[in-house]
């Protein structure tokens, strides 16, 4: 591997470099995936455009609507005070990515753009109905994450575009999220299957809406359920328990399978 290294100081500069070098360039966020891809000779960029000097890409804005800069790390997601409640699935998804060493560096934006079907945070963002902002030479455009992801390693991102941020609505008052994953080991595992759930209740403790997304079971994370459901308050309270369960050691197959099959 050999390449030239660029350190743009702004989004505009970064995008200009990408436009100039086209498919020969790769953006470097955390690098935890790109460097592996380069070593395995799956990609061979001639130019690596590091984003670490671009200001503002690593912030979490949780006043009202939530906005994540593309360079927000998994570590930052895990520790964000705003995600310890109704958005806890973000924490649960982030904390099972690699070891601490990876999570301290790897970014949400990198994870999305990498488009692994098994990316753990992606199903969470899908159930949160997230949208991504991509900036190119002709300005910014926004699209739903669901439309952005196309297949393994494939997204709607153009070669001269940079994914700069992810946003999703603030959680409704009576809503919760959950995330679980399964794999052969309890850590350092690429998901065999992972699942994220978003659920909201109405004033009578009835389920007002549910969204479920599955990772690692198709060419990209799938939104398998997205509709209001009818249920009794009793069922709902059980679901809430499940959604708030904090998996010890990262995950449990049992709960992920139940979530998928809609049992209990």
């Amino acid at each position: 591997m050999s390449f030239d290294f660029h350190e743009p100081a702004s989004i505009a500069e970064a995008v200009a470099l990408a436009a100039r070098f086209g498919t020969e360039a790769r953006f470097l966020a955390g690098g935890t995936d790109l460097l592996v891809q380069i070593r395995r000779k799956r990609v061979a960029p001639r130019h690596v455009v590091s984003l670490h000097r671009v200001p503002g890409l690593d912030t979490i804005d949780a006043n009202g609507e939530i906005r994540l800069g593309a360079l927000v790390t998994h570590r930052a997601l895990e520790r964000a005070p705003a995600f310890q409640g109704a958005l806890r699935a973000l924490v649960e998804g982030a904390r099972v990515v690699g070891g601490h060493q990876i999570r301290n560096v790897g970014t949400v934006g990198g994870n999305i753009v990498n488009a692994s079907p098994a990316a753990d945070v992606v199903p969470v963002l899908l159930v949160l109905d997230a949208a991504v902002t991509c900036v190119g030479p002709n300005g910014a455009r926004e699209m739903k994450l669901d439309e952005f992801l196309l297949g393994p390693g494939e997204t709607a991102l153009r070669p001269d575009e940079l994914l700069t941020s992810i946003r999703f609505p603030a959680p409704a008052l009576r809503s919760a999220t959950g995330f679980l994953k399964a794999g052969r080991r309890r850590a350092m595992e690429i998901s065999v299957v992972c699942v994220a759930v978003w659920l909201s209740l109405d004033g009578d403790d009835r389920c007002a809406g549910v969204r479920i997304s599955l990772g690692a079971v198709g060419p990209r994370a799938l939104r398998s359920c997205d509709r209001p459901v009818e249920s009794s308050p009793r069922t709902v309270s059980r679901s809430r328990t499940s959604a708030h369960r904090q998996p010890t050691g990262g995950f449990s197959w049992k709960h992920s399978f139940r979530a998928r099959s809609g049992q209990r």
């Binding site: 395995r40 052969r184 080991r185 850590a187 350092m188 595992e189 690429i190 050691g249 990262g250």
Partner: peptide, 13 residues
């Protein structure tokens, strides 16, 4: 042929 997919036990296993 890599330590992602050749799965040796971790502290949690």
């Amino acid at each position: 042929p890599n330590l992602t997919d050749y799965k040796m036990p971790t502290t949690l296993d």
